[in-house]
Nucleic acid binder design. Structure first.
Lengths: 309, 309
DNA sequence: ATATATCATAAGCTAAATCTTATGGTAACA
DNA sequence: TGTTACCATAAGATTTAGCTTATGATATAT
């Protein structure tokens, strides 16, 4: 059976009016045009849909089924159009994000604000490690990723949108925590709890030490940022972490930022997408949003870069 | 938005394969034909439905909506076809009948048998009076009507399909009930409980009396056949009724058929339809069925036309 | 009986749909 | 780096859809 929407539309009008002439008027058509559409539809169904008794029209049993089909299909089409319009106008839609676990904290804040502006947009947020992020981009399973500087050679398109200050932290009871200034040499004498090999933060720290011809002595490495901070709290060593992950510990005064010469190291957070990816409207808006709003957001954090006097 | 089923069909194949070339093979089309359909559909939606990243295809958010719409609509079409086929083959369908209240009893029996042959057919049965029956036909609100001989001038088409013997009944205690034979003169001396003016049964009885130049004395008339029988049971008078309504009373021996000269009067039950009405397949089959089966059914009734010896 | 309303049919025109072949461009892969 | 796989685009041919006007047929109403 090879129907057309036109046939259904015309049939629906006839079935509702039970009158070809009026249906024709409603559709701004000539009456024969309506007759023909109905005839063709009946040919497709190979059974009559409408019967004429005297002057009146009646729907056959099959005609009733056809009417129900026509209405349902046309209503669904209206719904589809509505949905598409909503998606386009961002009254509806879904934003698929993934963030590096260290970025989680401030991204959640960003999302909370964004979501107030676009309340109908649902969001999925994958918080995971660097390699998984790259994989998600590769598989086109997310719109945007927020992470440190992405590696080359993955056909990625990215832009920095926020400074990411790395600072040295220690337990407040650590002897360096009591000093107003810490020299690089003093720092180099300490042992560190660090992220695993391949981590962006660790790479940055290592580069910093190398540039200053110092040793970077790691006592432990682990993949979880929270674990690293906890280890530092417990006095297992110093740690170099993004200040954006420290809000809670600073407030609770379980960690102290050391005022080390040359710190903070300023890296950046990047918003990353696959090269050639046409962002959905909402993803594009989110991209613009974070470009504009990120700095303002961070100001609101009220995190001192160095320990209070 | 002015979609075509073709576009949806092609889109569905592409969305499923995520590959234009394979979709084209599946549809026995050239690959550019598929490209064009998708392009047109995207124009209709005025938004991309499919995005190509590297070599792979992905559905956009709108693409997913479109896929869901396409699948739903196509599935509904399959269902519609199935339904139409079933209606045509009478595996499904609805039969709208209406019967005169006096015919109710044996029609129910007919329907019980018919329904066993066509178990998937649902039936609606309207039991009502003569004028309502004609109105139902007029409004095309039923397929077939079963009643006594219909009046002229209603554009009706009808055929007798069963003898309808009218008999005289009385309470078993009535003095005529004890006689082997009852003459017309004896009958004419009695008073009757009869149907209302306009009733077919009453008309037939009246005609019978007139033809024999006798008086038809009615003591009461009422519209309900059951009430008439009850009145006769209670000795309010004789009654002339269709033997087909008597099964219960004969079994319970609350009424007796009088062996009156010239009785039973043989009238007929008719199956009636509107002139020019194209019967639905199932109505046509039912029509044929009662033409063939009615006599056999009545034999099974095992109703003696006259009181048992 | 005549007029009116309503649907069916025929003829003819136009625009749109749909397909094919040929060819161009690009990403992946060896 | 060349090859392969795959989609896009162009050009052109054919068919089909869809419409209108004119006219015919029929049932109802006057």
């Amino acid at each position: 059976m090879n129907l057309t929407f036109r046939q259904l539309k015309v049939f629906e009008a006839v079935a509702r009016n039970l009158n070809y002439t009026n249906a024709a008027k409603e559709l701004h058509l000539s009456q024969p045009a309506v007759s023909m559409q109905i005839k063709q539809l009946e040919e497709q169904a190979s059974t009559p849909l409408i019967e004429k008794l005297g002057k009146k029209l009646y729907l056959t049993e099959v005609g009733l089924e056809m009417q129900s089909y026509a209405r349902s299909t046309m209503q669904q089409l209206v719904d589809l159009e509505e949905t598409i319009t909503q998606i386009k106008s961002m009254e509806r839609g879904h934003l698929k994000l993934a963030v590096a676990s260290t970025a989680n904290h401030f991204v959640i804040r960003l999302l909370a604000r964004f979501s107030k502006v676009y309340p109908k947009i649902s969001i999925s947020l994958d918080v995971t490690n660097r390699s998984s992020l790259l994989e998600l981009l590769e598989k086109n399973e997310c719109d945007l990723v927020i992470m440190g500087r992405p590696p080359q050679g993955h056909n990625l398109q990215y832009a920095p949108f926020l400074e990411n200050p790395l600072v040295v932290v220690s337990s407040p009871t650590h002897f360096l925590a009591k000093k107003e200034h810490v020299s690089l040499q003093e720092l180099a004498n300490e042992e560190f709890v660090a992220r695993e090999q391949g981590s962006g933060t660790r790479g940055a720290a290592k580069r910093f030490f190398t540039e200053h011809e110092l040793d970077f002595k790691t006592k432990m490495d682990m993949s979880n940022n929270r674990a690293i901070k906890h280890a530092a709290e417990e006095g297992l060593g110093l740690a170099i972490v993004s200040v954006h992950t420290l809000e809670l510990e600073l407030k609770a005064k379980t960690l102290t930022i050391l005022n080390v010469e040359g710190f903070p190291i300023f890296r950046h957070w990047y918003v990353v997408q696959r090269e050639g990816k046409r962002l959905s409207p909402i993803a594009m808006v989110f991209n613009d949003y974070i470009m504009q709003e990120a700095d303002r957001l961070i100001e609101d954090f009220d995190i001192p870069l160095f320990k209070s006097p």
